[in-house]
Design a protein around this nucleic acid. Structure first.
Length: 846
DNA sequence: GAGTTTGAAACT
DNA sequence: CAGTTTCAAACTC
């Protein structure tokens, strides 16, 4: 029986079985959750903003952004999105997506968001405003009956990650519209009366309005900061070199099934220039939405975002805001080079009624719906370039976390009320079938942690939200200019903003670990300016790069050449959580991770040293490795891509203190088996019936009915790929059925016993309380005092339970009597003990 | 809790 | 790829 119970527990938290399933599932689920499941069912508008630093983009995108097919059959392998960053000299080529992009719809996300919270980020609600920093990717997710749709606009600033002052505000006044028009429209704020499905993009200073119309007719408005408008560039013409007001184009997303493309106009940029007026790049990204011919028909929404790369002079104090520049989603076609779009952002002020944090979830990989983002070169404005969403956007998730503002602010309203918006850089990594998400956090800055829970995922996803890069400008004093940019306040670690987005599945929960400095761990590091980023969860990277694709969490990614000096460390969510809990301060305060701390020490704490809450939330059993240094797959922690935590291992290297060794071990494992960190248990689309071991077991003696068998451990049947001998782990196996039955019975029995004992204890305790006065007066007859009706009943319950137990297992009568008597003895002892205790207490107190 | 069994991982 | 060894979990007593 005990083993059976254990078996179930193991199944609940398979250790070896599915280390990576979670990640894979997460990704896919994430996607689905984003819009399809949650948002889509209720029309809503979800506007999320992602912030990715250009550095990050330059380093990670191509590798991490790639998705990898994981056993999830549905989608065809996604092509590697070619992402170009401005830093990239050459435009990346993005494979053309031949499929007709479907709708980008906006749906009111309030309810759905709250429902799952998984991807809640910047939820656009009425009168919602939010700020977008440069490098921010604006993702509008929505879903309709047709499925999840996500539109993303990413902005970057080429050379200088830190450009102050660019501010974009996102507001979302909602307007009525027809359900059919799930369109994302960039519209002028003042624009009104537009028929649904159309958007007018006009020049307007300081405001770029992106109007999204959901079924509920709720538009989302993206407002651009003043700073953008000042040095504006002409759009589309390209002839005008002079600064011009930013122009916004309106794209009508109406009924035209055709994908429209807006040209991007750009003027020379003077990055880092102190000149107040600088050339701006204005690029427009248009996402076309195809209007559905029928309900099921594909729709194309046009999203046009005009970006002015504003390189404000640093002299402007007000504009100095922590800006994270990011690379964007670029799309390139054979004809047109990829373009980046930059949107200025403010990190902090974001008044809104929306959720406190903005998250962007990208790419429902399994979703048929695709978003096309087309960009065109100025000279060929009409040539739409369709890029599969999952290619262009799909693997990046950026999050901007905002603390709830006290009150919704108007666009261009005054500075934030002190709420801190922390850009979270989340990168979704994965293949089409198995997107994987990574949270990338600059370690040098105070991170904020955001936990994300993905239904069906065993992993605990956490977003680390941190202030933007080491832009010293962040601290610059904000100006009081209400209309414009609100200087970002220094990022403040606000743990209160941490949100548990989703319930954690099964036993995987937060681990308690004492944080430890990262610097030592990361091979890549160093200068004061060097920044490390934590890349989280632990999902294998795409196979596109053999050495990176299957990296488990904890992996430190070296920055790409020329991409800057940022180091990236992949950490398990649990660790991040730990950071949130304890290391937070350290991370926040230290510009660099200095020293390692006690993670190792704590990791070796025996499990029994945990507090009740800790032990209950412990994701997995502690390992007991002695010889493997926890750097072999023998170690469940390592195999699961986790750091050892509260384990009983000896000479553990599975921690940040030995990151280099760990990386080597990971590499070695991957060399031996490229899918070493992938889940062994593939999960079918629906339900567990389709689950099966990817490799099959090789049992010889256990009959595959013990936990030695990975199939049995994972509670799945052996399949044809198993090489087991004498397998009894098949559907019709009587042995298996018996075991299952016994396991169920045992579970029930345990529950009943527990309940009975609890009841007995409760009764005794109750009596103890009630009879205390009498005890003192009744002298030595205390035990009898406790044998009341309630106690007798509880005792009988226990005795009956023993009788049932004996009967259940066909025990002989003698044995049944013995069990009953023993139980009766236990009960009597407890009664007597309680009485004695009561007497003792009474004598002391009286 | 110690010792044994087991099968995956690692190694040759 | 097959055989052997190593390893840690599962299991038994």
């Amino acid at each position: 029986m005990a083993s059976l119970h254990k078996t179930e527990q193991n199944v609940a938290t398979p250790s070896r079985a599915a280390p990576c399933v979670n990640a894979a599932q997460t990704a896919s689920i994430f996607t689905e959750v984003d819009c399809d499941r949650d948002f889509g069912k209720v029309d809503g508008v979800c506007v999320s903003m992602d912030v990715v630093s250009p550095d990050l983009n330059s380093i990670l995108p191509d590798e991490i952004m790639d998705t990898e097919a994981m056993a999830m059959e549905e989608d065809p392998p996604a092509e590697t999105p070619a992402q170009s960053s401005q830093s990239d000299p050459e435009p990346a080529q993005v494979p053309m997506e031949t499929e007709v992009p479907e709708i980008i719809s906006l749906c009111p996300a309030t309810t759905p968001m709250q429902k799952t919270e998984a991807l809640t980020t910047l939820t656009a609600t009425d009168s919602t405003l939010c700020s977008i920093s440069a490098g921010t990717r604006l993702v509008v997710t929505s879903s309709s009956s047709a499925g999840p749709k996500i539109a993303t606009v990413t902005t970057t600033q080429p050379s200088s990650p830190v450009v102050g002052q660019s501010v974009a505000k996102l507001s979302a006044p909602f307007m009525p519209t027809s359900p059919a028009n799930h369109q994302l429209i960039i519209n002028k704020v003042a624009a009104d009366g537009k028929s649904p499905g159309t958007a007018a993009l006009k020049q307007e200073r300081q405001k770029l309005l992106v109007t999204g119309l959901s079924k509920l007719g709720q538009p989302i408005v993206l407002a651009l900061p003043n700073t953008w408008s000042k040095p504006a560039t002409s759009q589309g013409t390209g002839s005008d070199v002079k600064p011009q007001p930013t122009q916004f184009k309106v794209v009508s997303a109406g009924t035209k099934p055709v994908i429209g493309v807006q040209t991007v106009t750009s003027a020379n940029q003077l990055l880092g220039s102190s000149s107040p007026l600088q050339a701006q790049q204005l690029k427009t990204v248009q996402i076309t939405k195809k209007t559905p011919v029928s309900t099921a028909g594909p729709m194309i929404t046009k999203l046009i975002i005009t970006k002015a790369l504003n390189n404000k002079s640093l002299t402007s104090q007000a504009t100095v805001t922590p800006v994270v520049t990011g690379r964007v989603l670029t799309q390139s076609t054979p004809v047109t080079p990829p373009r980046t779009i930059t949107i200025g952002e403010t990190i902090n002020t974001t008044p809104q009624s929306l959720s406190s944090s903005s998250k962007v979830a990208i790419s429902p990989l399994k979703s048929p719906s695709k978003v096309t983002v087309a960009t065109q070169p100025p000279n060929s404005p009409q040539k739409p370039v369709a890029v599969p969403l999952n290619v262009a956007l799909g693997q990046q998730i950026l999050t901007v976390q905002q603390t709830p503002s006290t009150s919704p602010a108007k666009a261009g309203s005054s500075q934030s009320t002190g709420q801190t918006v922390k850009p979270v850089q989340t990168v979704a990594v994965g293949g089409v079938n198995t997107p994987q998400f990574k949270t990338i956090i600059p370690l040098a800055t105070p991170p904020n942690v955001q936990q994300i829970q993905v239904p069906g995922s065993r992993f605990h996803y956490v977003r680390l939200v941190t202030a933007t890069t080491g832009n010293t400008a962040q601290t610059a004093n904000t100006t009081t200019n209400p209309t414009t940019i609100h200087p970002a306040k220094p990022m403040v670690m606000n743990t209160a903003t941490v949100r548990m987005s989703v319930p954690i599945v099964s036993a995987q929960t937060v681990k308690q670990v004492v944080p430890k400095p990262m610097t030592s761990a990361a091979p890549v590091v160093s200068s004061s300016q060097t920044q490390q980023r934590l890349i989280m969860p632990a999902a294998p990277l795409p196979q596109i790069q053999p050495n990176l694709t299957n990296l488990p969490p904890g992996t430190v990614l070296a920055p790409a050449a020329g991409s800057g000096n940022m180091g990236y460390a992949v950490l398990p969510a649990q660790y991040v959580t730990q950071l949130q809990q304890s290391t937070f301060v350290t991370l926040a305060s230290s510009s660099g991770f200095s020293t390692p701390s006690s993670i190792q020490t704590q990791a070796r704490l025996p499990l029994n040293g945990l507090s009740p809450s800790e032990s209950t939330s412990r994701p997995r059993k502690p390992c007991n490795c002695t010889k493997s240094q926890c750097l072999k797959l023998y170690c469940d922690c390592f195999a699961n891509g986790e750091f050892c935590n509260n384990c009983n291992c000896v000479n553990c290297f599975n921690n940040l203190d030995h990151e280099s060794d760990r990386l080597k071990a990971i590499k070695a494992c991957l060399d031996r088996n490229p899918v070493a960190f992938k889940p062994k248990i593939g999960k079918g689309k629906e339900g567990e019936s389709e689950r099966r071991h990817s490799k099959g077991c090789n049992c010889k003696k256990s009959g595959c009915l013990k936990n030695y068998c990975e199939c049995y451990e994972a509670k799945i049947m052996c399949s044809s790929i198993c090489k087991c001998v004498g397998c009894k782990n098949f559907e019709e196996s009587p042995e298996r059925k018996t075991l299952m039955h016994l396991a169920d019975a045992a579970e029930v029995r345990v529950q009943q016993q527990t309940a009975a004992k609890t009841k007995l204890s409760s009764q005794i305790s109750d009596l103890l309380t009630r009879t205390t006065p009498a005890i003192s007066s009744s002298g030595g007859k205390l035990p009898y005092t406790f044998v009341t009706k309630e106690v007798a009943e509880a005792t009988c319950d226990c005795l009956l339970e023993q009788a049932k137990k004996a009967e259940r297992y066909n025990q002989p009568q003698v044995m049944a009597e013995r069990l009953i008597l023993e139980e009766f003895g236990h009960c009597l002892r407890r009664i007597i003990s309680s009485a004695a205790k009561a007497k003792s207490d009474c004598s002391i107190n009286c």
